[in-house]
């Protein structure tokens, strides 16, 4: 994923419980509103953040959500990064297919979140998992 110019310092939320997931998605929504994303774009981004935040909590044992407004060639968007120090995802390719789940979800977490955003990047190893997403405004 390209390194985009950030419009403001990143805001972070440490996620250790399901109430932190709510806090994290509220932070993402506030940033998206401030950057002028349309309501549908905001909703898609916040929903993706909710999926990824929950994934991080359930499979990664919690972690940190970092979000910042970004811009590129006149477009404005929101960048969000989810980092955990969990056991990692053994087969990222498999985890990105619809219907695959190792927990009690519907298996839409990763693949669904990917469809809701414009850019999606995942790095996973024994030391943890990092997911980065970008949603651009209209």
């Amino acid at each position: 994923m390209k390194q985009y110019a950030t419009g403001a310092p990143a805001e972070t939320v440490a996620v250790t419980s399901s109430s932190d997931v709510v806090t994290a998605r509220q932070m993402v929504r506030t940033l998206a509103q401030r950057s002028g994303l349309s309501l549908v774009h905001q909703t898609k981004l916040v929903t993706a953040a909710s999926e990824l935040g929950r994934n991080m909590l359930v499979y990664g044992g919690g972690g940190v959500v970092r979000a910042a407004p970004v811009s590129d060639e006149g477009r404005r968007g929101i960048f969000v990064e989810f980092t955990d120090e969990g056991p990692g995802i053994p087969d990222v390719e498999l985890a990105l297919t619809d219907g695959w789940t190792s927990g009690n979800g519907m298996g839409l977490g990763l693949s669904g979140a990917k469809r809701l955003v414009d850019e999606f990047e995942i790095e996973s190893g024994p030391g943890g998992t990092t997911v980065r997403i970008v949603k651009w405004g209209r």
Binding site: V40, T43, K44, E51, D98, L108, R115, L116
Partner: peptide, 8 residues
């Protein structure tokens, strides 16, 4: 619209 995109 988001739910549809999500696959639900």
């Amino acid at each position: 619209m988001t739910l549809v995109e999500l696959g639900l």
